[in-house]
């Protein structure tokens, strides 16, 4: 048990990264992580050591997120109207290009976005990612491919314009 706690602790930064992308607001993201940790400790016996610890934790985190999605949706809707002052401050200085990626990510359907985050950012295999999301690998493949293409279209719109201007 002790070593499991230690191992889980080592995964916290990764859980927070994914949660941050899921939730948008740091506070809420940590709520998700906290819920995940509590659940994981409670169900530690259910963990199958043959399956990776990380994908097990991510699956808990993801399910936690899904079950809270309704309230999260409201919160997101709300935040569209009210920029929280500290959210802007915490955003640090990010280049406009990254802002573009951030905005494009926000526009993706959540299912597509999550697939991309798990594979491209967290480095999960397709097998693991499909387990986290509880979908068949085929579904994951198609979501991933659509996510990348949509993101490319959205962000290329901006860079294509830059190229045109540069050519003048």
């Amino acid at each position: 048990m002790h070593s499991l706690r230690t191992r889980i602790t080592a995964e916290i930064p990764h859980l927070r990264r994914y949660a941050r992308a899921l939730a948008g607001c740091p506070e809420e993201a940590d709520d998700l992580v906290q819920g995940c940790l509590e659940r994981a400790l409670k169900n530690a016996r259910k963990w199958d050591p043959d399956k990776g610890l990380r994908s097990w934790l991510f699956r808990i985190l993801h399910n936690n997120h899904v079950s809270r999605r309704r309230s999260v949706d409201r919160e997101l809707h709300f935040r569209r109207h009210f920029r929280e002052p500290d959210a802007v401050a915490a955003g640090q200085e990010v280049s406009t290009e990254l802002d573009g990626v951030r905005a494009a990510m926000a526009e993706l359907p959540e299912e597509h976005r999550n697939a991309l985050l798990l594979v491209a950012v967290e480095g999960f295999t397709y097998e693991e990612a499909s387990e986290v999301l509880s979908v068949p690998v085929g579904t994951l493949r198609s979501r991933l491919s659509r996510a990348r293409e949509a993101l490319r279209t959205k962000t290329n719109g901006a860079s294509a314009k830059r190229v045109e201007r540069g050519a003048e």
Partner: peptide
């Protein structure tokens, strides 16, 4: 894209883990 995504989300990894977690 993958590179940009990591730039966007990686900073969280370096943050200290909050006490409550």
């Amino acid at each position: 894209q993958a590179h940009a995504l990591r730039q966007l989300y990686d900073p969280v990894l370096d943050e200290p883990i909050p006490d409550r977690l």
